[in-house]
């Protein structure tokens, strides 16, 4: 029996590792490709600045790659670590760890490409602002990585915690649900944060005097766009750390799995939507800084409304955990 668990844990770890780096590479590759495409556009507009654009592209790509390195780390740990197989729950936990990190890296990789691309274009438009544009781009890209860090945290908890004392039914559903909640919800927030940061770099290039207002509003917008990922993290924590009573039926396990799916999928749209709402605010504040108060208010109200669907998802998620 002990051998059986070990074999299944290995199978789950190998599949989880494949999913982690396979899915995780998608976002970084898209983000890096987008940056390179924008860099080409920038160089064609002003070939004399090719060196600066090239440097900016490289730096932006180095940051955009971080999320996929997280995926690589999780994949390597799953492949080569000696994961203690105390129960069949470990099988679900290690597979969920791969799912969490794989999905969680997609949004951050894609998102980080937007500010890097916008900075390359902005640099040829406003060469004097190169340093400030690069800093803005780097801050924006770094904040984009936060949702993937949430996914990494959940992956590590799933890999390194001992769930041996928990009942197999329904805990396996909770483990898979936790991975899906943290991973999928990070997609929207990563992309949304990137859309805001891209608009910020573009705004600074159009109106260099607005740099401090635009950077502040970008950070505010990115912070709010992270909310669906935070809700996903919260649901994942509840699923991992709440002790569920043993059952003989499949329904409670599926309810817990659905709870994670509900929060994960439900967080994708709001994250992107909030990013779009915030990018509008940032873009127009750069062009009309005098109306910063009205524009910020409109942006925040728009983001709050876009956020509501993530809250509905969380409510249903909590109902599935605590009521069903």
């Amino acid at each position: 029996m002990e051998q059986d668990i070990q074999t299944w844990v290995k199978l789950a770890a190998y599949s989880g590792a494949g999913l982690s780096i396979g899915l995780g590479a998608i976002g970084a590759a898209i983000g890096e490709g987008y940056t390179a495409a924008q860099a080409n556009s920038a160089v064609s507009r002003n070939p004399a600045l090719a060196g600066d654009v090239f440097k900016s592209m490289l730096v932006g790509q180095a940051i955009a790659e971080s999320a996929s390195i997280f995926s690589l780390v999780v994949a390597m740990i799953l492949l080569f670590s000696n994961i203690p197989a105390t129960s069949f729950i470990t099988v679900a936990a290690v597979f969920a760890a791969g799912l969490s990190m794989g999905f969680g890296a997609i949004g951050s990789g894609v998102g980080a490409g937007f500010p890097a691309g916008a900075a390359c274009i902005g640099m040829v438009r406003q060469p004097a602002m190169s340093a400030k544009l690069t800093t803005n781009m780097l801050i924006g890209s770094a904040v984009c990585q936060t949702p993937s860090i949430f996914a990494l945290v959940i992956s590590f908890i799933l890999i390194f915690s001992d769930f041996g004392s928990h009942p197999l039914w329904p805990t396996w559903g909770a483990m898979l649900g936790a991975g899906l909640a943290a991973g999928l919800s990070a997609i929207g927030s990563g992309i949304g944060g990137g859309v805001v940061a891209g608009a910020s770099s573009e705004g600074i290039a159009r109106q260099p005097t607005s740099v401090s207002s635009v950077t502040n509003i970008m950070l505010l917008g990115q912070a709010i766009a992270q909310t669906p990922a935070i809700l996903g993290l919260l649901v994942a924590f509840i699923l991992i750390f709440k002790e569920f009573g043993a059952t003989d039926t499949i329904a409670p396990a599926i309810a817990l799995l659905s709870s994670g799916l509900c929060m994960g999928i439900g967080g994708i749209g709001p994250g992107i939507g909030e990013g779009i709402a915030s990018s509008g605010g940032v873009k127009w504040i750069a062009r009309n800084e005098k109306e910063i108060g009205t524009l910020t208010r409109t942006m925040l109200v728009g983001m709050a409304v876009a956020e509501s669907t993530a809250i509905y998802s969380m409510v249903i998620s909590l109902v599935l955990i605590f009521v069903v």
């Binding site: 180095a62 940051i63 971080s66 390195i69 340093a131 400030k132």
Partner: peptide, 20 residues
């Protein structure tokens, strides 16, 4: 080792933020 793998991105970020 994992922290070391993020040394270049961390330095890039710290360098620009400190300069600004």
């Amino acid at each position: 080792t994992i922290a070391g793998l993020f040394m270049v991105p961390s330095v890039i970020l710290a360098d620009h933020i400190s300069r600004t």
